[in-house]
Simulated assay, not measured.
Amino acid sequence: MPDHEDIETRIRDTYDSLSPGARRAADHLLRHPDDAAVYSATEIAAASGVSKATVSRLFRTLGYVDAQEVREHARALRSTGVPVSVGPTADLAAHLRAEHAALDRMVDGLADGRLDRAAELLASAREVVVVGFRNSYPVALHLRQQLTQARGGVRIAPAPGQSVGEELGGLGAEDAVVLVGFRRRPRGFGSVLAALTRRGVPIVVVADPEFGSSGTVTLVAPVTSLSAFDSYAAAMSLANLLAAAVLARDLRGGRARVEGITALYGELGELE
């Protein structure tokens, strides 16, 4: 079976062919999918009311050698961003430590001056386009909102209902693109990066540590968390740092822009 399929998908694909006992174990795993990433075959058998041998046969039917391979597969999927829990997540202190560690790694990665290089590209560009797909779009949208306070000519792409080509057509060496792409990137992400590179458009990539590129300024934010889902706390913090660094390139002009926007908020009655 394909390695990218999680145990729930494998169960649903083979459910009709399972024995009654195996179905009881499968039903338990469908109700408690996190158990596959944490517990042994003996523990799963006890929880589902079947024998350990039944659980072992179920795992073999699903394409695994044993429960250890099930756990390893679940953890491997989690490392690519698949939302599979690998243990209890109620320990808030542990969650906080993990978030702090992610922020520390992000800051350490900026120590070589790449944040300044990225800010210079964005501050000097004629137009800045912030591009984000799927789970990266909220980070891109937040970064665009921050950057537009610091300078004019900033837009988000793709806009709803628009294709990528028409959003990026006409960009050149005088412009800049921030390409936000965290793991589980869509298939066309690399094509967008390559097309922009061929056209000589300066690119700042904001991504997770697993991403690798050349010819771009790459800013890395870890997203792995203790829970079943990736955390974008470091990514949002990175958006803050990047926008602030752009603002610092023209502090007087940026302040004037912020004051003008704030005055317009009041004139339009948009904020409380």
Results as ranks from 00 to 15, higher is better:
S227M: 01
V246C: 10
R198P: 11
V201K: 15
S214Q: 13
E272D: 13
T42G: 02
L143G: 12
A228P: 01
V131N: 13
A118G: 15
V180S: 05
E43Q: 09
R183P: 02
E127Q: 15
R183N: 03
A195Q: 12
E43W: 02
P33I: 06
R185D: 01
H95Q: 08
S124F: 04
L58E: 02
G109R: 13
H4V: 04
A37I: 01
A207R: 03
L92S: 10
V139W: 02
L242Y: 09
A123H: 11
P222R: 00
P2D: 14
Y137S: 13
G81P: 05
R134M: 05
L171R: 14
D13F: 03
V246A: 12
K52Y: 07
R184M: 02
V154D: 08
R71K: 11
R187L: 03
A111M: 14
Y39D: 06
Y137W: 10
V129R: 12
G190M: 02
G254D: 08
V38P: 00
G161R: 14
G49L: 10
G169D: 15
S124R: 14
G181K: 10
Y137T: 10
A45K: 04
L103P: 00
L219Y: 07
A53C: 03
D175N: 10
M106F: 05
A243G: 15
F211T: 07
P88T: 02
F182S: 01
S163W: 11
P83H: 06
S51A: 11
R185P: 01
L241S: 11
T9A: 07
L226S: 00
A47Q: 13
G49K: 11
G87K: 02
E99G: 00
V130C: 13
P20C: 04
L247N: 03
L268M: 04
G161H: 13
M236W: 11
R257K: 06
I261H: 06
R252D: 09
A256V: 08
L110H: 12
H100K: 12
L62F: 06
A176G: 13
V180E: 07
H4E: 08
S213E: 10
R31L: 10
G269W: 04
L196Y: 12
A125V: 10
A119K: 10
